[in-house]
Design a protein around this nucleic acid. Structure first.
Lengths: 212, 212
DNA sequence: ATATTGTTTAACAAATAAGTCAAACTAAAA
DNA sequence: TTTTAGTTTGACTTATTTGTTAAACAATAT
């Protein structure tokens, strides 16, 4: 082993964080024991305490890192200056890909913010994300794009819901609508990347028709 | 006290189940201790064991009862023979009202089925809900109604997502889009009862336009 | 009245997991 | 080489929580 202490430290810390994220997401904060995490990381349990004093501190660190994965796509759809239809497609694509790699993320995050709602404001600040400003910009850009008759907050809630639900509700939905065929469900998830923007596009067309 | 033992029993059991549902939903299966539940029900902790042997058995009973609240609206939109637009409105209305009264339900259910995906098939059977049949009926009815170009599974996933997301993601979304104004968010939730069917209606219009 | 069944409680035992501590180990610095 | 700082580990303590047991209590039936 030709590691110096510093690289050893960094490596161990990274391994702990990766293992923690994985185990916390799969088992939940309370379902995951420090031993589980240590095993996943291939280290001694006490080492977790050495690096992160206690379970809460470890969890907080992990939560922020995991939560951060939700931000980039959100920022991009709210601030990019491309045509709306394209932003929409990019957003759905980016979010879907992220969820495909982190299927347990939404349940994990929503569970935690449900138990601990005050955490959100803090975490968002920590991530350097300014909700008020960003959302205002989104709103005004939408108006400029001539979608002023569709409340951006409803639009955004619908969009997020449509994207996220199939991941959150997978076990349920795969059972009732796909007879538990996992492969078919994967294909379904992929199709949604096109279906969701398409549905919204049709709604825009419908709206413009009704306007006249 | 003029209760006989039988009515006492029923009352106690009902109180336990109500308290359990509340505490489990708010704190999660692992976050809720038997003591928490006993306190909420105003009884001795050992009594819980007397009525439901152990925590797992109690939880299973509660989960089935809570999960059952998801079924009726789902069945009605899939089997009713009213015009589709009306079914849609009724579904959104029914689901929204149920969620308003059970705001913690979706996170609770999704967390549990995420940890325990095999439970779903069993629970659905327990509830006398036959996914395959019901969904097939939904599909064919949709086709008859002339919406054959919109995959019913995508439609249903979108619908559920749009309805449920604002409840699951409330702490997050209320913060970023409503500056934490709870009253405004309640109004928003109410608006969605109309917004969601409206969006889908517009999409149908858009689809019919594009068809030509 | 008392015996029996069912209900409720307090006290105890066992298991699990978090967190602490001191000792062992490693690698670079003096 | 030895010292020093940093890293890793095993053993221990403590706290929490589940589940059990036996006894007390209540209400009805004999």
């Amino acid at each position: 082993m030709n590691d110096n202490k510093q690289s050893r430290e960094i490596d161990t810390e990274r391994r702990i964080l990766e293992a923690s994220a994985k185990v916390f997401m799969m088992k939940g904060k309370l379902g995951a024991s420090m031993q589980d995490i240590a095993d996943e990381a291939g280290i001694n349990r006490t080492l977790l305490h050495y690096y992160f004093r206690n379970k809460d501190k470890l969890f907080d660190t992990v939560f922020e890192k995991v939560f951060a994965r939700l931000i980039p796509a959100m920022v991009s759809i709210m601030t990019s200056d491309q045509p709306f239809q394209e932003r929409l497609e990019q957003f759905v694509e980016a979010y879907s890909d992220m969820l495909l790699e982190n299927p347990y993320l939404p349940v994990f995050v929503f569970q935690e913010i449900s138990l601990n709602p005050h955490r959100i404001a803090e975490t968002l600040k920590e991530q350097g994300f300014s909700p008020k400003k960003t959302f205002k910009k989104f709103r005004s850009e939408l108006e400029e794009a001539g979608m002023d008759d569709m409340d951006p907050r409803h639009l955004f809630a619908s969009l997020l819901g449509m994207v996220i639900f199939p991941y959150i509700g997978r076990p349920l939905f795969q059972t009732i609508a796909f007879q538990d065929d996992a492969k078919a469900y994967d294909a379904f998830l992929d199709e949604r990347k096109k279906q969701i923007p398409q549905l919204l596009k049709l709604a825009f067309i419908g709206a413009s028709v009704q306007k006249q």
